[in-house]
Simulated scan of single mutants.
Amino acid sequence: MIEMIEKRRRSLGGGLEVGRVLPFARRRMVGPFIFFDHLGPLDLAAGVDRSVDVRPHPHIGLSTITYLFSGEVMHRDSLGSEQAIRPQEVNWMTAGSGITHSERFEKAHAMGDHLHGIQAWVALPDGDEETAPSFSHHEGGDLPQWDADGVRGQLIAGSAYGLTAAARTHSPLFYVHLELEPGAIAEIPAHCAERAIYIARGAIEIDGERHEAGRMLIPGPGISSFRATEPATAMVLGGEPVGERFLFWNFVSSSKARLAQAAEDWKAGRMKLPDADHDEFIPLPSADTAPPPMS
């Protein structure tokens, strides 16, 4: 049995759209993964209006994972971090008790850019939801790679395929980028209770059925692999559940009262803005159904 989720177009404002996959009405999470957005592919012309930037905004109770196939994004946060991310690199930000950050398309403003990537959030487990905020950038040897039998892989986070990535995780999980040649077969790690495959490009066959880009597949326990029917890019992810989590705007928590407190703190200006990007911010939405922006 395979559960399917189609990405839905969502506007982040300023003309920037994403394909939202998680959360979904019938599937809020996969393991600790509570949010999954597909950014692009999107061409931004040189001099594009700065309204496409993601202005400073807050988070609590989660880790954000930024991963690009192409393009460049500049991250700045309230800890003082300032870090550009480029293809096949990882920006890992743990919000914990609270952090604010911005993501600016500065390369696009200067010379144009082709943006394509994934934004994911991982809910922190009980006992770590209020951990101290932190930020780390990873590239090269921090992200183990392999190339065999028509599959090129890079481990983004956690442990899978006998490898472990460098970013600190707070619960068992894995997150992998695979590039597959036509006919190549990829294993789906089975060591975690919940698993998913997101097709970012091309098409794959699993359990005898063909699926194309823009779809997340959640396989049952008896399904252990999939095959590329054409050149394909797939994100394979999963982990152990962390329990029920509530989500309001950019905040994740096991407590609705904590979400309300975070919203009030942001509205009242009690959350520090990034030192290097403090002249504007995204206001608290008026409706509790407001979708979160790019992480």
Rank of each mutant, 00 (worst) to 15 (best):
S159M: 11
F105Y: 12
D149F: 01
E187L: 05
W146P: 02
W266D: 04
M111D: 13
E17S: 13
R258G: 01
R152D: 04
P293Y: 09
A157K: 01
L217C: 06
I34G: 15
R27Y: 03
K256E: 14
P125G: 00
I5S: 05
R245Q: 11
I282S: 08
P41D: 05
R210V: 13
L68I: 06
H57S: 04
M216F: 02
S134C: 05
A160V: 05
A193E: 15
P293E: 07
R258Y: 00
L180K: 00
D77C: 01
S254Y: 02
P144W: 02
E280Y: 10
E82C: 10
Q154R: 13
R201Q: 12
E240Q: 13
A260R: 08
E209N: 14
L16V: 12
K272D: 06
D207A: 15
W266T: 08
D275F: 11
R10Y: 14
D147E: 15
G239C: 05
G40M: 11
H137W: 12
P58Q: 10
V151M: 02
G220R: 09
E181R: 13
G158S: 10
G19N: 11
A228S: 03
L259Q: 01
H57R: 13
R55N: 13
L143R: 10
G15F: 09
G127Y: 05
P182D: 07
S134L: 10
G141P: 05
A268W: 12
L173T: 01
M111I: 14
G141V: 07
D142V: 00
F135D: 04
D43L: 14
R245Y: 12
I188Y: 01
E264A: 15
A260S: 14
K7W: 09
R20H: 05
F135V: 10
A268E: 13
T94M: 10
R227H: 02
P274N: 07
R168H: 08
S102A: 12
F281R: 15
A228C: 03
E179I: 07
L79S: 05
V30N: 02
S224T: 11
A276N: 12
E280N: 14
P41N: 07
